[in-house]
Amino acid sequence: MTALRLIAPLAVRALVEVLTKRFEAGHGLPVFMNFALAPDIGETVIGGDAPDLIIATPDVMAALIAEGLASGDLHRPFGRVSFALGRSCEMCDPLRTIPELRELLRNAREIVYTADGTGGERFLAALDELGLAEEIADRLQPLAPGEPARVAAAGKVDLAALPLPLILATEGLNPVALLPAGLGTDVDFSMSLSTRGAERDAAHDLLNHFSSKDNDATLKRHGVARFELK
């Protein structure tokens, strides 16, 4: 049987790898994984890539469905990702209130974030909402994908603003604050089969595996919550 292929956002890479290895062990079928920044996934598929399973933001999925590149009938929610601030420190109970968040950001020396991607854009918008964008502008540093977590874990900067799953997946980096959902930084990811994948029984098995409630505890451990598609 031909191997399966999937594409998913970098923000949930560690989680997708765990779920995929579990599927491979149970089905004896390899799955090749490709990861990209969330905004690039649609362009990758439209550009000719044809994975069986696609995980992307709902708006990207809607565009792929409209283009006839993904199945509308099989479109399902995957998970909601919170945004957080990470630091090289011992595990602690993350701050959760707006006043605590403002104080943490005001006192930070350097704050790094991913220059491209949905999360970085939403973080900057949240700073505007908090009234801190101009006040801490000289301490903000946009970096290439993967760099914010790396330099923060090494203690080279004070804070990294990243999706919670990325912080939890990085050794030496722990979340010290969770951005409240009201700031608009949460990102939803949904999934469907490509029109190619919709014709394959094994691809349906993979989609069902990723949808299974049996994996909800694993999602939670990786900082991802289930949600309902509107």
Rank of each mutant, 00 (worst) to 15 (best):
L10S: 13
V18F: 13
K21M: 10
K21V: 09
F23D: 14
G28Y: 00
V31G: 13
M33K: 11
A36P: 11
L37Q: 15
P39F: 14
E43W: 03
L53Y: 02
I65N: 02
I65G: 01
E67G: 00
G68P: 12
L69H: 00
D73P: 01
L74E: 07
R76P: 14
R80Y: 02
V81W: 02
S82A: 13
R87K: 14
C89R: 13
L95R: 03
L95D: 02
R96D: 01
T97P: 11
Y113E: 01
Y113T: 05
T114D: 07
D116T: 04
D116F: 03
G117H: 12
G117L: 12
G119Y: 12
G120D: 04
G120F: 01
L124Q: 11
L127I: 08
L132Y: 12
A133T: 12
E135W: 02
A144W: 11
A154V: 05
A154R: 15
D158Q: 10
L159H: 12
A160C: 05
P163V: 01
L166R: 15
L168A: 00
A169S: 11
G172E: 04
P175M: 05
V176Y: 12
G184C: 09
T185C: 15
M191C: 11
M191P: 09
L193E: 06
T195F: 11
T195K: 15
R196T: 08
D205S: 10
F210M: 10
F210R: 05
K213H: 03
K213Q: 08
T218I: 15
R221S: 15
V224G: 15
V224K: 15
A225G: 01
L229S: 09
L229H: 06
